[in-house]
Design a protein around this nucleic acid. Structure first.
Lengths: 196, 196
DNA sequence: TGTACATCAGTGAACGCGCGTTCACTGATGTAC
DNA sequence: TGTACATCAGTGAACGCGCGTTCACTGATGTAC
């Protein structure tokens, strides 16, 4: 019972942090706001989590998990590997558009000076890229090592396109324009990779 | 003479800020450090520039200008549009690798809550993308409107690849691996775009 | 050329606030008898 | 079952520091006579 109370506290804090990140973004995230939303004292954050960064990582893990689910669903919805890849990209844009703040938080959060991003979290990121590997290998006949690199390159290209299209620093594009541009881009890329 | 003293102060501050950004990155940039390096009082920053953000933008403009120069040089070094595009990408990676902090600063800097990135600075960013348009239009026969979007998409894809390959959140890649992956990527993309 | 005065860029100590983290306390929970 | 005691999660006021920005002052520069 004592254990479950402790779990409840962690859960409340995590929920509160997640909601804040989804609604306002990581830039507006304050320890005080989170604990207030969670209905506990400021200091409790530090009995439940080592520090604020760890709590943020936990919230980002949830976002990654939701994103990963949608990517898996996109793969499952198709059997043709070509369509699977297009579906993955479409799912990625769609997630980014529907979860702007949470999605940005995945890449905007920085660890403090000395600290490294823990390995388990890096793995969660890498797992996303992994989702591309199967369809890509079905489509091309590449050696496994090359494949991992290709998947990663493809992921970061798509990511870059989505990211930039949502930034203020450039003229923002409408959702439809982004999706269309991404489709054209991926189409060309796959054609180019296949017809070597 | 009075005017030139004032210019000298702005220059000193800008140089100091630029050096700090190049050496330590934008995250470690403090008003006090800059003014100390520039050999002036803390308050002088605010007689020379409206605020710290404007000074940062000025420093980023310099970085953009240096980057733009290298991109122009890459275009000028080739006549074949296909090679020009490969050269542009190569120049981009190379600049990013040789100016990691300054390059990151271009995209990491955020304006405070209410403020927007000024238009002249957005233009400077857009000008980079513009460098792709000529070779791309020589290579493909696309309508001008489509072309701008394609150039932008291509730019952000390349940018995404370079960016992610330098992040801690993923396993960092060596410079050679990045360059090779980028070449393969671009090669495939151009093949795909041409052979429609 | 020299003197008195006005201006204002430049100064840097002080302000003000935000905000993550700590720590001495307390009250709920569990244990012993 | 009831009582005394120990433990420790939870508390929130206080700490501490970083840091951008301001503002009352001053000394260099320019102007008038």
């Amino acid at each position: 019972v004592a254990e479950s109370k402790r779990e409840k506290l962690r859960e409340n804090l995590l929920n509160a942090a997640e909601k804040r990140i989804i609604d306002q973004g990581i830039g507006a995230l304050r320890a005080r706001d989170i604990t207030q939303d969670a209905g506990c004292a400021l200091g409790s954050l530090y009995t439940a989590y080592k520090d604020l960064d760890l709590l943020i990582l936990a919230a980002n893990s949830r976002t990654l998990s939701r994103l990963h689910d949608e990517l898996r669903a996109a793969v499952a919805a198709e059997t043709d590997p070509h369509k699977q890849l297009l579906g993955l990209a479409a799912a990625y844009v769609s997630f980014a558009l529907n979860n702007r703040h949470a999605w940005s938080a995945l890449f905007d959060h920085r660890m403090p000076e000395g600290a490294e991003v823990p390995d388990w979290h890096i793995q969660e990121h890498a797992a996303l890229v992994g989702e591309i590997i199967a369809p890509l290998s079905a489509l091309l006949q590449t050696e496994p090592e090359q494949l991992a690199l290709q998947a990663r390159t493809l992921f970061s290209a798509v990511h870059g396109i989505v990211k930039l299209s949502l930034e203020d620093r450039f003229v923002a594009l409408g959702p439809d324009t982004v999706s269309a541009a991404l489709d054209d881009f991926l189409g060309a890329q796959l054609r180019g990779l296949a017809g070597r």
